[in-house]
């Protein structure tokens, strides 16, 4: 491994002091790469991401075990705005833009002066936003909201961009465009991206590395290209087995048993 920007070791997060959401999750995000974190509903992907970007005290969530290291700093239990100022920017799953502010105000909200990412450059990536500048963000379509959210995040001068469910509620064609755009942005700006996705196909297509989570643990990991061709991952997360012929229920159950738990 070369330069590790973010390292999560044996992370455990407990909500409301009783509900354990993730348990012993370890992952590494090398500098300049795109890492995808895929898995089904309730696998703990969002919680992992939220733990990295910090919880507000009012959320009553606590990192009870493990370390999160960003660069060479241990960042357990930092507040979100501290992480944001350190360059870890999260694009959340929902409520990702300020609906009562105009598009322009949304972008201005995030803008921190200086740096190479300017408003013009962001609008260059998302020309659609220029037309909607004075509109209220609450009236944008889902795809436009997502673009605005990413634009906002870019204006916060991120080093590590955390994106939760880029594809949520979007049409397949929009997802494809957005993914390609994200890939381009990350390469042009030298961004490191940790991408949480349910749509594993789309995510792994642009990612360098992938982690598969289930039930609060990491169950597979490896190079994205290896994961895509891995029969188990294909079977469970990419929709449809490698073989096209219908299998009996008994065979499927055997596949389920074959899954191993790491961490």
């Amino acid at each position: 491994m070369t330069d590790i920007l973010l390292q999560v070791r044996q992370l455990e997060v407990v909500y409301h002091r009783v509900a354990t959401a993730v348990q012993g999750v370890s992952l590494e995000v090398p500098k300049g790469s795109i890492v995808a974190l895929v898995g089904t509903n309730g696998a703990g992907k969002t919680t992992t991401l939220r733990a990295i970007s910090g919880f507000l005290p009012s959320e009553d969530a606590e990192i009870t075990d493990g370390d999160i290291t960003y660069g060479d700093r241990r960042i357990n239990g930092q507040l979100p705005h501290q992480m944001a100022r350190a360059g870890v920017i999260l694009v959340p799953e929902r409520d990702k833009v300020f609906g009562t502010l105009s598009v322009e105000d949304n972008l201005e909200f995030a803008a921190r002066g200086g740096g190479e990412i300017t408003l013009e450059r962001v609008l260059g990536y998302f020309p659609l936003l220029t037309q909607r500048k004075s509109q209220l963000a609450g009236y944008l379509s889902g795809g436009e909201k997502q673009m605005l959210a990413i634009g906002m995040a870019l204006l916060c001068r991120p080093t590590l961009l955390l994106i939760d469910e880029l594809s949520l509620g979007l049409a397949p064609i929009v997802i494809k465009d957005l993914m390609a755009l994200l890939h381009r942005i990350s390469k042009e700006l030298g961004l490191t991206v940790l991408l949480v996705e349910q749509n594993a196909n789309a995510a792994l297509a642009i990612a360098d590395f992938g982690y598969v989570m289930e039930g609060g643990r990491v169950v597979f990991y490896g190079k994205a290209s290896e994961l895509i061709s891995h029969p188990d991952v294909r079977e469970f997360y990419l929709g449809g087995a490698a073989q096209s012929e219908t299998k009996s229920y008994r065979d499927i159950k055997q596949y389920r048993r074959k899954r191993r738990w790491w961490g």
């Binding site: 009562t100 502010l101 921190r112």
Partner: peptide
Amino acid sequence: RGTAENALLASQRGVD
């Protein structure tokens, strides 16, 4: 105004 609408998102965008 942003904080009034969504304090969490505001915090995630670097606002104390």
